[in-house]
Amino acid sequence: MEIFNAENVVKKFIHTTALDRVSISIPKGSIYGLLGPNGAGKTTLIRIINQITAPDEGSLFFNGKSLHPDHISNIGYLPEERGLYKKMKVGEQVIYLARLKGLSKSEANKKLKYWFEKFEITSWWNKKVQELSKGMQQKVQFIVTVIHEPELLIFDEPFSGFDPINADMLKNEILSLQERGSTIIFSTHNMGSVEELCDHITLVDKGKTLIEGPIDNIRDQYRTDTYEVGFQGDPEKLKNALNKHYELLEINGDNDIKSAKIRLLHHTTDNELISLLLPAVHLVSFNEVYPNMHDIFIKVVNENKGS
């Protein structure tokens, strides 16, 4: 079951085509990574989901129904460039923004109290935003995003500007929101956090979708048949054991337990590799090296550049 679908979305600006027939489908309950280099069209896509801008072509569905202005109250959005009214008091401001999302005054009040107590920031209620530090403002912005308990949450570069402690807190909050049933769209350049959090991704570049799907499938797809071997013994013996069907990528022979990276060529299998190595050295570990998202990202974007 998907919470959001976009089919063949096209958005043109005066000078560029920001989105060129982009389709995505976001499974309910997932953390969905929206990746791509700067200017790829991520923010445009996010703005279309938020109904800030309308697409020129294509169809959009929220929970299977055609996207409608009422769906706004079911979406929470933390933009990359985010801010607050500097001269407004914190409590008043969050309640105002929550009511714009459709909460009643008393509901907003109740929920805001919950979050303020959770973050232990009740004393900020009557402070003006300009009196808060940047990190404190980020907490307030996070509350604004989630206070109306939307089904779909969109975070655009959420970790930029966060110190490690706040970033960790945010990460845990995102995971606990997912546990409680929210779906999260997560746009970022930070591949580490993608691997940590996302279960689905889409990679867009120059307005086109390059990869889409569950992250495990994608990593599977970009496997390079490379294995990391931990062993004890003479590295030379290991080298000699390999024939032309195997490529030795690197070898590290300084410690007691040595390691090597070996890639399989010509449809050989891991079992065959193991049986070659067993007589030569004492095997300690044998693992497949999965490509990380960073490498996949660079590889795919560079290939797209060539095309």
Binding site: N50, I52, I72, P79, G83, Y85, L100
Partner: peptide
Amino acid sequence: IEEKVNRIVEVVISSVKP
């Protein structure tokens, strides 16, 4: 200008129409 400079505007227009 204040809303634009403070960058609150994108938050607000994700709730209401510009």
